[in-house]
Design a protein around this nucleic acid. Structure first.
Length: 231
DNA sequence: CCCTGATTCGC
DNA sequence: GCGAATCAGG
């Protein structure tokens, strides 16, 4: 697999959403966790609560320590420690624990209890497929074209026999995705659409809320549509 | 052991 | 540029 623009874009999004490299690799498919991390770094986006931090304690007695002897001309090649070990940056990250527990698909209908995030400067809503909708003020990339994740040939299986599949979509039923493309239970909402919109009334609320007039106090932050990994 | 991300380095 | 191998903390 190669890093197409789409795949890179997905990688960026997921990485910024806090997904682990494994999850991202899993989601993208065809790449390893390492590949994802490597790519992320090459893209410049890095640094995230890493389990490995400052190794300030001892001068890495990993291999070929030899702190005293400046190794004049060691015949025996010193594999990795050949270069002078520079002190690691060790960013003083302000301890932010707790995983991104943002993913809590609220059951339909009851969006009553939601935690009013006071420290959230701007409202970011999540679009179908877990894509972030951005306000007019902070557009950054032309991602409007359909969220192209891996699409599978809509394999018919007993589990989705009564679900709304890709093939069942038409302009009168809600096409809000439930689950993730490629997964066995992936299907669409299937409710009657809110006339003029591609989604039912309820999902229109999810899809368009970020575009409501600024004054409209409508904090119930979207129970973010399942992050990639709902199950 | 498992997981995580960071880094190195041969390709 | 890519990613396996490796390292290192949880």
């Amino acid at each position: 697999m190669s890093w197409t623009d789409e795949r890179i874009e997905s990688l960026r999004t997921m990485w910024e959403k806090g997904l682990t490299a494994s999850q991202i690799a899993d989601e993208l498919g065809g790449v390893s966790r390492n590949a994802v991390i490597g790519k992320a770094h090459r893209l410049g986006l890095k640094s995230r609560p890493s389990p490995v931090k400052a190794t300030d304690k001892v001068a890495k007695p990993v291999k070929a320590a030899a702190p005293a002897a400046p190794k004049p001309a060691t015949p025996v090649a010193a594999p990795r420690a050949a270069a002078p070990v520079a002190p690691r940056p060790a960013a003083p990250a302000p301890k932010l624990d707790a995983k991104p527990a943002i993913d809590t698909p609220n059951a339909d209908g009851g969006l009553g209890d939601v935690i009013p995030k006071a420290d959230q400067p701007r409202i970011v809503s999540i679009g179908p497929g877990g894509f972030i909708r951005q306000g007019p003020g902070d557009q950054q990339a032309p991602i409007p074209p359909a969220p192209p994740r891996r699409l599978v040939p809509a394999k018919p299986s007993p589990e989705i026999a009564d679900k709304t599949t890709l093939l069942d979509l038409n302009d009168r039923i809600c096409r809000w995705p439930m689950g993730h493309p490629g997964e066995p239970d992936f299907h669409f909402c299937g409710e009657a659409v809110n006339p003029g919109f591609p989604y039912c009334v309820q999902h229109c609320g999810r899809a368009y809320q970020a575009q409501l007039p600024r004054g409209t106090r409508r904090p119930p932050p979207p129970p973010p549509f399942g992050g990639p990994r709902v199950r």
